[in-house]
């Protein structure tokens, strides 16, 4: 590998049209994402934890069925149990979303990245597009597999599918563990929004990475947003906190995966699923705008 002779590389054919744009950055970001091991570890955790934990919790809940009282039976939610893994996955995707930005700031390679384009916001956009698309696909696939695996677990415990249009009351009086089909009311939406929830959190974490430019800082802020903010709100006077709680990210996530017809004790407290998704998207958008403004204004 050491050579004192200089052999010039052949000249590179010039391009006399267009410019280095978003498409170029997207391809490059995909190369960067797939060429480090941490990506694959995070994605594996999302898939394994997503499916495994959901199947495990469905198994545990099904085993407890005979000991459950009427209220608990009424609140037995086969869709929600099938998405339990989301609790772990939300932190994993947040770490990955932040890392694809902060690892570049930690090494200084962000300066190499920014010197490949004359417009810095294309770097922000490309990272959001690539990590957003990857997490969306992986978490949607995971969510739907989790759903079917969990329903199979419930069936194995002697569960029976409720007839279409059945209500909470029907479930209350049913003697068997309820199992839902994907075609049942709200199931597709709930499972789909589970993937959307993880995707929006990833985008938020990625934007936080650009704002804070530091791995520990960005991950702390992300975890604080998910876990600490609810604690802070909970110690506020309830007259005050009551109107805020539904806007907490964790409650937005809950609202997004609840099947509306099954809402019981949450009714009136949580936003409707699509509104909750919209609010979470607004949070992510605000973080992205802040990230864009700071990225353009600050020295790299």
């Amino acid at each position: 590998m050491t050579t004192a002779t200089v052999t010039a590389a052949p000249p590179l054919p010039a391009i006399d049209h267009g410019h280095a744009g978003l498409g170029n950055q997207v391809v490059s970001e995909w190369t960067k994402l797939r060429s480090v091991r941490s990506t694959w570890i995070c994605l594996a955790v999302v898939v394994v934890a997503g499916i495994g934990l959901s199947a495990l919790v469905s198994n545990i809940e099904a085993g407890r069925w005979t000991h459950l009282g009427l209220v608990d039976r009424a609140q037995f939610d086969p869709v929600r149990f099938s998405q339990t893994g989301e609790f772990i996955s939300q932190f994993v995707v947040g770490v990955l979303g932040a890392l694809i930005v902060t690892s570049e700031y930690a090494t200084g390679s962000i300066r190499t990245t920014l010197s490949t384009t004359s417009k810095r916001t294309t770097v922000l956009s490309a990272k959001l597009i690539v990590i957003g698309a990857v997490i969306f696909i992986v978490s949607e696939v995971t969510a739907f597999i989790s759903f079917f695996v969990s329903q199979a677990v419930l069936l194995a415990h002697g569960g029976k599918a409720l007839p279409a249009g059945s209500t909470i009351l029907d479930q209350l009086h049913s003697a068997t563990i309820p199992v839902v089909g994907i075609a049942s009311d709200g199931a597709v939406r709930a499972v789909f929004l589970c993937g959307v929830y993880l995707t929006l959190l990833t985008l938020l974490a990625c934007a936080l990475g650009f704002v804070l430019r530091h791995t520990a800082g960005a991950i702390s802020a992300f975890v604080g947003f998910l876990l600490v903010l609810p604690l802070v709100v909970s110690i506020l006077p309830s007259s005050f906190s009551g109107s805020f709680e539904r806007y907490l990210p964790s409650n937005l996530g809950l609202a997004m995966i609840l099947v509306t017809s099954r809402k019981t004790d949450f009714a009136g407290v949580l936003l409707t699923p699509w509104v909750a998704a919209g609010v979470l998207a607004a949070y992510a958008a605000a973080a992205v705008v802040l990230a864009g403004v700071l990225l353009v204004r600050r020295d790299a």
Partner: peptide, 29 residues
């Protein structure tokens, strides 16, 4: 318009993701 084709720079040698191969680092660039 094509920054990398007009100006190249070596500013910090160690500004690299340690887990990426040399070929992939250059490919992404």
């Amino acid at each position: 318009r094509w920054p990398l084709r007009e100006v190249g720079a070596l500013l910090e040698a160690k500004a690299l993701h340690p887990g990426r191969s040399a070929a992939n680092h250059l490919l992404a660039l």
